[in-house]
Design a protein around this nucleic acid. Structure first.
Lengths: 149, 149
DNA sequence: CATAATCTCTTCCTCAGAGAAGAGAAATCT
DNA sequence: AGATTTCTCTTCTCTGAGGAAGAGATTATG
């Protein structure tokens, strides 16, 4: 790739990168029979930490009924655990107890390939990359939060 | 990903980054009422270019019936166009005719934030980042292809 | 040619997942 | 204490996506 200044195809490169990452994520979810909403909720729980069913329902956009059954599915599959809230006995805390093993397995080839790529960079270049990863993660997280109406 | 020799939290940083990107993608799709499979198919068409319903069905893992209706939905919404194959009159070519405007709109805040971040790097650092984007896109694409059984 | 294979599309059926409404338990407010 | 509000969970219903089987059209094969 030609990399001089702000190259004119920067947007195209980034779009292709984003599409490839998204497609791989979707394909991975499919490969381990995880429903779209279920993985969505798992991602939320991993990024924001444990929360109540109410908040999870709000973030997923589901009403209380589907939220309960969503948590049932995740709990059944062993990805999530319900525990009583210490300060409010009506509430329940939902926390991730283990990433789907199958998902890790399915994503392993991609991780290996990315690892291979990263090993090709110098420590200084890796500093740049991981600086970007950290900042971009926050940026996407904020942008996602802003999407909630 | 193997993170030997890198900063100890490299794996965690990368996982958070990946989760944030995936979650934002899912949230964006939701925000414009695109079904998970529909967006999946659109991503495939964008990354691999025009193809026949048969190949699209193979890549999405759908049988012919659902594939036809998937294309119907995308065509109805104006994202995709059917045209007859010139060399085989049984075949149909499905091609992306326009990215969902609403999706672009929904993703704009994230793009703006990422653009802001990228503007903070020197040209040399941008070289590293876009070199990575290009390589990683190919890596994820290959890993996704390997997922197909 | 005639038969088989290929490709898309249609039809019917099934079922997971989402909404609505309400019950029960617990906290909060007079 | 009694009343209201807040949470979670249950039940019922329904929409919509996906699978199976087959029709129609076209191409390939013997």
């Amino acid at each position: 790739m030609s990399t001089r200044g702000m190259r004119p195809d920067a947007g195209a490169v980034y779009r292709r990168y984003l599409s490839a990452v998204l497609l791989h994520g979707q394909a991975s979810a499919r490969a381990c029979d995880l429903g779209a909403t279920d993985l969505y909720a798992l991602n939320i729980l991993e990024l924001h930490g444990a929360m109540t069913p109410g908040e999870l329902g709000e973030r997923t956009g589901l009403t209380t009924g589907p939220t309960t059954r969503l948590i049932d599915r995740l709990e059944q599959a062993g990805y999530v655990r319900r525990s009583p809230s210490p300060d409010d006995r009506r509430k329940v805390i939902v926390e991730v107890v283990g990433k789907p093993a199958r998902l890790d397995e399915v994503m392993a080839p991609a991780r290996e390939r990315v690892g291979e790529i990263l090993r090709g960079y110098t420590p200084e270049q890796l500093d740049v990359l991981f600086d970007y990863f950290g900042r971009a993660a926050t940026a996407y997280q904020e942008a996602t939060d802003d999407l909630r109406p």
